[in-house]
Simulated assay, not measured.
Amino acid sequence: MERRNFLRVAVVGTAAAAFGGANWREAFAAGAQPGPSPYGPLQPVNSSGLVLPQGFSSRVIARSGQKVAGYTWHAAPDGGACFADGTGWIYVSNSEVPLVGGVGAIKFDAQGTITSAYRTLNFTSVNCAGGATPWNTWLSCEEIDRGYVYETDPWGVKAAVRRPAMGRFKHEACAADPVRKVVYLTEDVPDGCLYRFRPTTWGDLSAGTLEVMTGGTETSGPVGWAPVPDPDGSPTATRNQVSGAKRFNGGEGCYYADGTCWFTTKGDGRVWAYNASQSTISLTYDDSLVPAGTAPLTGVDNVTRSSGGDLFVAEDGGNMEICIITRDGVVAPFLQVPGQSGSEITGPAFSPDGSRLYFSSQRGTSGSSSGGITYEVSGPFRR
């Protein structure tokens, strides 16, 4: 048997055992392979500069350095999320630049018209990704050594609060699990870890226990968790404090839904699934297990999920695409941003009703952090 096929069979088999023989859908997703998109082929580039499936439209809602409803949109837009606001919604976006960093927000009415824009966090550093909480705050993460997590108010009314109990390390993204009452966190270094923070009181991130995932080098099977003795990370980095901490090569995006925490690792082109109820991991996608030259998804980065259960994974580099991984284990391009090879796609997030997808090209056509472009895509998303 050819080595790639052998590895794929091995991955699917071990995932099936981990998830239970009856759940073949999740087991098959461990070996997600290229196939036809449920949205059909991509069409020619449109007036917004995007390549989309038929039936979808797009618009540019913000450009770095230009005014949006009176607010100058920040440089290097990165991780983002949407929050319901009455009949409208808010899209928040990090700024991945040193010293200034922070978070900006755009508010929409029920028809999708921009009504206001504003700043919710200032003077932090390299705010990369983050995650939304069930109590409607945005956790903005610093991607620097011994960086912090900041809890911010999407409405910009309450002052942002630093959350040191969530650990000081090179943060990337996080995702809240309301069932187990924990927040998962990724770490963007080649020998990084996956963490979870267990607040003393759910809904209050001021105190709690930081834990790190433990286990061997296997890509599927059971894993454990152990407390990190010193979340401050000095003098010993958090990832090096627990013997047996499981290593992940460059943690990136993170998203929780329906008992699963999906997270990506850019160093090896993988999308992982942590089954929270069984405390097992498996591979949803691994670009090395796709026949050579056919991988539609490379440079995995931020990840989100539609209300219909499909994953949408943004590329840092690659072909500048957002790819879909369907519920049935098919991976295919959903959209492409041509002519911006010096950029990366960041901050994918769906509006509360699931009809609009927001994201940014962090450096746009210029290849500079001052050239960021933020888009909205509308259309018949599967729900």
Rank of each mutant, 00 (worst) to 15 (best):
residue 11 V to D: 11
residue 227 P to C: 05
residue 145 D to E: 07
residue 91 Y to W: 15
residue 276 A to T: 15
residue 24 W to H: 05
residue 279 S to Y: 02
residue 328 D to P: 03
residue 319 N to P: 00
residue 353 D to T: 05
residue 141 C to K: 01
residue 108 F to W: 06
residue 359 F to Y: 04
residue 106 I to C: 06
residue 364 G to K: 02
residue 119 R to G: 11
residue 169 F to W: 04
residue 162 R to S: 12
residue 334 F to I: 04
residue 373 I to F: 05
residue 152 T to H: 10
residue 303 V to W: 07
residue 360 S to T: 06
residue 314 A to N: 05
residue 106 I to N: 00
residue 123 F to C: 04
residue 154 P to A: 13
residue 79 G to C: 11
residue 132 A to F: 07
residue 5 N to K: 14
residue 323 C to H: 03
residue 47 S to C: 11
residue 368 S to M: 13
residue 233 G to S: 02
residue 226 A to Q: 03
residue 301 D to P: 02
residue 200 T to L: 12
residue 141 C to M: 13
residue 383 R to E: 08
residue 30 A to V: 02
residue 40 G to M: 08
residue 245 A to C: 08
residue 120 T to R: 08
residue 326 T to S: 09
residue 110 A to M: 04
residue 197 F to L: 06
residue 185 L to D: 03
residue 338 P to S: 13
residue 115 T to Q: 11
residue 68 V to M: 14
residue 165 A to Y: 11
residue 366 S to H: 04
residue 63 R to C: 08
residue 243 S to P: 00
residue 34 P to K: 10
residue 319 N to Y: 08
residue 275 N to G: 07
residue 71 Y to I: 03
residue 258 D to H: 15
residue 246 K to P: 09
residue 121 L to G: 02
residue 320 M to Q: 14
residue 93 S to G: 04
residue 24 W to M: 09
residue 89 W to C: 00
residue 216 G to C: 12
residue 129 A to H: 07
residue 49 G to H: 09
residue 63 R to T: 14
residue 205 L to N: 06
residue 106 I to S: 00
residue 15 A to N: 02
residue 87 T to A: 15
residue 39 Y to F: 14
residue 362 Q to R: 06
residue 6 F to V: 15
residue 149 V to P: 04
residue 131 G to F: 12
residue 379 G to D: 09
residue 335 L to R: 03
residue 290 V to H: 04
residue 327 R to I: 12
residue 202 W to M: 11
residue 361 S to Y: 01
residue 118 Y to T: 08
residue 290 V to W: 14
residue 306 S to Q: 02
residue 307 S to Q: 13
residue 120 T to G: 08
residue 266 K to R: 12
residue 83 F to Q: 11
residue 36 P to K: 14
residue 196 R to S: 06
residue 342 G to V: 08
residue 2 E to T: 04
residue 261 C to H: 00
residue 46 N to F: 06
residue 131 G to I: 12
residue 132 A to S: 15
residue 126 V to I: 14
residue 252 E to K: 12
residue 137 T to C: 06
residue 374 T to L: 05
residue 243 S to E: 01
residue 111 Q to L: 11
residue 334 F to E: 02
